[in-house]
Design a protein around this nucleic acid. Structure first.
Length: 521
RNA sequence: GGGCCGGUAGCUCAGUAGGUAGAGCAUAUGCCUUUUAAGCAUAGGGUCGCGGGUUCGAGUCCCGCCCGGCUCACCA
């Protein structure tokens, strides 16, 4: 019986088969196809930095004092020419050319060079020189094999363009598209900058539960999971806020956490279900104090990541050295989009507000108008302060106007990138706010805050007056790196799972020396 | 979830009016000891996202589905 299968190998199978043969060939030459430790003298970027400006004369005569180096990298291009050849090795997003000549590496070394495929990882030892065309290169005297690429590299000229593949196989994106690496290096730089600045101000980094029995600190739908031994449902946190403020009660007066939040909501250019937030809490300050300190935090972060305070984003220059401040009412009047620009009297008039929004209360209507008519107009970084109490269940009231709270949001490029307020520390008032939220919940608002009695208990032990702030790391990274979508600043953004790949089966078949178990004859 | 757009060789892309599926890169073989999108010659490589329908004939037209992108809704 002949099992049904395609008569010919597909191209992909053929490439895989060829490369598995190559693996045996490399073994036959006495090299490990998956090598071991390789001590290099320089990384490729180090070589380029150190010797990139040196002339051929400065590098020295070939056999003489030319700098000797050991470097490793992935073969990105290979140009064999008879009994010699060139290749570019890539490491840390940068490339260095190597020149491999049969006379210099010997028969076995040159056979290995001939067996190299694009994508393989090798180590070389030799001396630096400049080619006839002037390119800094390693004249290889010893070649070592470090790792085999069995599949094939994306096209050398266009790189990897397919967005879906870029996200699903980010490693390929990182190999093929050097600018992608820069984005993630910048992201790490942003987080480093924020940590350094906070540490310098006496903040300590803490970690609070990601799995919580009650979810709070934001208005969002949660993910639910289950702990078997305790047999309880837990929520992946939508925010760390209520835990961080418990730490204020405990006397950790300056704390911060940089970690993931999870919100079970839609995906968009600005939303990924898991996203990274910096939250920090500082005892004895208030939202005015935070406005000043976060202006400095952002200014310095922009400098640390981009080298300056002005950032180009989607054709606009954003200036992080001058962050304007508007009250929410002022912002609505100032940035109103469309006809019939309201006056400050209008936006202070509950009747006018309720006429212009479908929301149930004047405060919610104000916030609704701000989001609908104004937020996306705020391109330059801005702080919008004095939010209505209805939408801010954890913020402290303004003493002169209890319908408003001491809160501000940081908006840039039309996106909310931060949210901060003077923390409500009165347990009685907090209880009333939770009760307001419960009333909303009973009216069907799934995202209204839950009653968190343990949090009320913590406040009842006395929380110092404090200010707290959250900054969306992903969105800030977008702005500082010019990324149009949040998926471009998250290494592995959420996608629907793809179907079976069949790779394991192919490897099983080809791994058995190309024989197909059950193929019969 | 709605609307619009897309999925063709490993990669980047063409594919006219419905008439035997193409290019470049990559791969294989040969030549080539300073090339660089190396070059020259030759060759192989396709479930046209999946399934159904219309038709003598479908990559192309129709229907359903899968995956992705944009957008709207949602996301205080």
């Amino acid at each position: 019986m002949f099992p049904l299968r395609r008569a010919l190998l597909s191209l992909e199978d053929e490439l895989l088969k060829q490369r598995l043969c190559r693996t045996r060939e490399i073994e036959g030459l006495g090299y490990l196809p998956y090598g071991r430790r390789f001590d290099y003298t320089h990384t490729i970027p180090e070589i380029l930095a150190q010797f990139g400006a040196k002339t051929a004369e400065e590098l020295g005569p070939a056999a003489g004092n030319a700098p000797r180096v050991r470097v490793a990298g992935r073969v990105m291009t290979k140009r064999p020419m008879g009994k010699a050849g060139f290749a570019h090795l890539q490491q840390d997003g940068e490339r260095l050319q190597v020149y491999v000549k049969k006379d210099a590496v010997g028969d076995r070394g040159f056979q290995l060079f001939q067996a190299l495929d694009n994508g393989d990882i090798v180590g070389v030892e030799g001396y630096l020189f400049r080619t006839r065309t002037g390119e800094l290169s390693v004249h290889v005297e010893q070649l070592e094999f470090l790792s085999k690429m069995l599949l094939s590299l994306p096209e050398k000229w266009h790189g990897l363009e397919d967005v879906e593949t870029r996200y699903r196989q980010r490693y390929l994106d990182l190999i093929a598209n050097p600018e992608v690496r820069k984005v993630f290096v910048a992201r790490a730089g942003l987080i480093g900058s924020l940590r350094r600045q906070l540490e310098a101000r006496g903040f300590i980094e803490v970690e609070t539960p990601m799995m919580q029995p009650l979810y709070g600190g934001a208005a969002a739908k949660p993910f639910v999971t289950h702990h078997n031994t305790l047999d309880i449902d837990l929520y992946l946190r939508i925010a760390p806020e209520l835990y961080l403020k418990r730490l204020l009660v405990g006397g950790l007066e300056r704390v911060y956490e940089i970690n993931r939040n999870f919100r079970n909501e839609g995906l968009s250019k600005q939303h990924n279900p898991e996203f990274t937030m910096l939250e920090f809490y500082q005892a004895y300050t208030d939202y005015r104090g935070l406005m000043d300190s976060s202006a400095e935090l952002l200014r310095q972060a922009a400098i640390d990541v981009t080298g300056g305070t002005e950032v180009e984003y989607e054709g606009q220059r954003l200036d992080f050295a001058h962050i304007e401040r508007y009250s929410m009412r002022e912002a609505i009047v100032h940035f109103w989009e469309g006809p019939e620009r309201p006056t400050l009297e209008n936006v202070a008039d509950p009747d006018w507000l309720l006429e212009h929004s479908a929301k149930a209360s004047a405060g919610e209507a104000l916030a609704d108008l701000f989001e609908r008519m104004v937020e996306h107009q705020l391109i330059q970084p801005a702080m919008i302060y004095d939010h209505p109490v209805e939408t801010s269940p954890l913020s402290k009231n303004k003493p002169e106007d209890p319908a408003f709270v001491e809160r501000f949001e940081i908006i840039a490029a039309g996106m909310e990138i931060g949210n901060a307020y003077t923390e409500l520390n009165d347990p009685q008032e907090q209880r009333r706010r939770f009760e307001m939220q419960l009333a909303l919940r009973e009216r069907g608002d799934e995202e209204a805050h839950q009653m968190d009695e343990d949090y009320i208990r913590a406040l009842s032990y006395g929380m110092p007056p404090a200010g707290g702030e959250g900054i969306g790391i992903d969105r800030l990274t977008m702005i500082l790196t010019g990324s149009r979508t949040i998926r471009d600043v998250i290494l592995f953004p959420l996608l629907r799972p793809e179907g079976p790949l069949d790779l394991v089966e192919k490897l099983r078949e080809l791994g058995a020396g190309g024989r197909e178990p059950g193929a019969g004859d």
